Simulated scan of single mutants.
Amino acid sequence: MAWWEWLLDICGALLLLCVLYGAGLIVRRRTLSRNGGTFELSHRYRTSSAQRGWMLGLGRYSGETLEWFRVFTLSPRPKRSWRRDELSYDGRREPVGTEQASLYPDHLVIRCHSPQGEVELAMSVSSLTGFQAWLEAMPPGTDWNRR
């Protein structure tokens, strides 16, 4: 085979891999949202520098936990999860500086506290309403004074 035929075969294989990856992302997203609604939820993974370290993702409520999945991975498992009784809402703010380009449009940055430290998430206003309702809707028998 000539060199250009090898090059054409390699380009075709790379294109096929890209299409399969995209199809895998679509199937994964539909699988995640099958057992309950998902919503756009970004997480500030690295807090070492201001306004940096944001990763786009999806959030899903699963019983007593909030699960966070990265967008551009094929893994069916959540990258992070937080238990409802360990999170406490601490306030919200508008994205500033480079955060505006890193996050989904019209998302707010919220701060929460957990036993592992401060957690920063970004979500839409309607998702924030659902998040606050989920935090307040603890099951009967919960020790409300523990916080």
Rank of each mutant, 00 (worst) to 15 (best):
S33K: 07
L25Y: 01
T142C: 05
S75G: 06
R60L: 02
W3K: 14
Y89L: 04
G22I: 08
P78W: 00
R84N: 07
R44Q: 15
A137H: 07
F39T: 03
G24D: 05
A133Q: 15
E120P: 04
A2I: 08
G141Q: 05
L16D: 10
T73D: 04
G141C: 08
R77H: 07
K79G: 07
V125T: 12
G59H: 01
S75R: 04
W4A: 11
E67I: 05
L15W: 14
E5Y: 06
S127R: 00
L128C: 03
G57R: 01
T129S: 14
T73G: 07
R28T: 07
G63Q: 00
M1C: 09
D85A: 13
F69H: 15
L20Y: 08
L16P: 05
A50F: 08
A13Y: 00
N35G: 15
S81V: 06
W4C: 07
G63W: 01
K79H: 13
P140A: 03
W68A: 05
Q132H: 13
I26A: 14
T65R: 04
L7T: 10
L15D: 08
V119A: 03
A2R: 12
E99L: 06
A101W: 04
S42I: 02
G22T: 07
G97V: 05
L108P: 05
L74D: 01
T47K: 08
R83P: 06
V27Q: 13
P76Q: 06
G91S: 04
S48I: 09
A101P: 03
V71D: 02
A133W: 06
Q51D: 10
L66S: 06
F39R: 02
D90T: 09
L56S: 14
R44P: 04
S75V: 06
A13F: 01
A101Q: 12
D9H: 13
R80F: 02
Q51K: 04
A101F: 03
I10S: 09
A137K: 01
I10V: 15
E5L: 12
G53F: 01
S75C: 14
L103Y: 00
L74R: 01
V96D: 01
T47A: 10
P78A: 01
T98P: 01
A133T: 14
E67K: 11
V96C: 01
R46W: 10
R83L: 04
W68R: 00
C112G: 07
P76N: 03
F72K: 14
E120H: 15
I110M: 00
G117V: 00
V125F: 09
L103Q: 02
R30P: 05
H113I: 10
E64I: 07
L56F: 04
P105G: 03
